[in-house]
Amino acid sequence: MKIVPGAICEAGTSRVNKTGGWRTFKPVYDYDKCIKCKLCELLCPDSSVRPKEDGYFEFDYNYCKGCGICANECPKSAITMVLEEK
């Protein structure tokens, strides 16, 4: 591997760094409350909310850092932040 001046490289290379380990609280869905409004997917700063085939969403815990924006913004309080237990 050679480095390129300016630290320019292909897009998406940060995927190798699974940064979900930084998390203290993790978001958990209550699908009974979810109305599929997509706000959590749109607002997640790390693209860690993924759509499922049934129209609901799931979290990609490999990259979710537990910032809690999704839980804060969910209009139905369908997302709860739960303390991580290692």
């Binding site: 480095i3 001046p5 300016g6 490289c9 292909e10 998406g12 760094n17």
Partner: peptide
């Protein structure tokens, strides 16, 4: 798509400074 000004950990940072 390319990444500009990517993260460089201690394995790479020195070399960027050397290039400058």
């Amino acid at each position: 798509p390319m990444t500009f000004g990517a993260f460089a950990d201690p394995n790479f940072y020195t070399e960027f400074r050397y290039q400058q």
